[in-house]
């Protein structure tokens, strides 16, 4: 009795371990395609490859706890030549982290941003996802202009939601600060 049950469990374990392994690459691809893909498509411009398929994982050193930080870089290519990169970055908003996908061309100029995840207040801080706010970032570089107007920059924050707006700006600035290193890693 025990033997049969053990044999069935062992057989099941074997089959499942194999199934898990066999479907892993396909599952990872789908996850990237449907979770990050829509944002990647929005922020990269003028590419003709599949950025999801060409994803590059680069190591960015270690965090405070000694865990390695790996980020996924989605390259946009045209005719085989790399024309832009998209990667995500996050910063503290009013309620928790705001995760932003940032598209950058090879000169470090923003081609677009898209908010992937946030838990800001509906109708207030959550309005940072609207194009009226996010479109302001395109064409900017890492400079004093890339700041909220209240801090002397050129970005108009969403009214009544300065913490949320600042969170997005911080995330974008963080992404651009990484850019030189990212560029070196992928080329």
């Amino acid at each position: 009795m025990v033997f049969v049950l053990t044999a069935i469990c062992a057989g099941a374990a074997l089959v499942l371990a194999y199934a898990n392994k066999a479907t892993q690459p396909a599952r990872e691809y789908q996850l990237l395609k449907y979770v990050q893909g829509p944002s990647v498509k929005k922020v990269l411009k003028g590419y003709d490859n599949d950025p999801i398929k060409d994803v590059i994982e680069v190591s960015m050193g270690k965090d405070e706890k000694g865990q390695p930080i790996n980020i996924k870089i989605f390259p946009g290519k045209k005719g085989g030549k790399m024309i832009g990169l998209a990667y995500s970055s996050s910063a503290q908003g009013y309620h928790g982290q705001i995760e932003v996908m940032v598209g950058v061309d090879m000169n470090g100029t923003i081609t677009g941003i898209s908010i992937m995840r946030h838990s800001e207040t509906p109708g207030l801080g959550a309005r940072v996802v609207e194009p009226a706010f996010t479109n302001q970032f395109a064409g900017m570089k890492l400079s004093g202009q890339l700041n909220l107007s209240a801090r002397g920059g050129k970005i108009d924050g969403v009214s009544g939601a300065s913490f949320s707006s600042q969170g997005v700006v911080s995330a974008v600035r963080k992404a651009l600060q990484l850019f030189p290193k990212v560029k070196k890693e992928v080329s």
Partner: peptide
């Protein structure tokens, strides 16, 4: 005596396979 337990193991294994396949091809 242990048939129900055995059936559940078999059924659950196929459910896990379906889960994995759907994640991989029909996200």
């Amino acid at each position: 005596k242990v048939r129900i337990a055995a059936f559940i193991v078999v059924i659950a294994s196929f459910v896990v396979i379906v889960e994995l396949m759907m994640q991989a091809y029909f996200y």
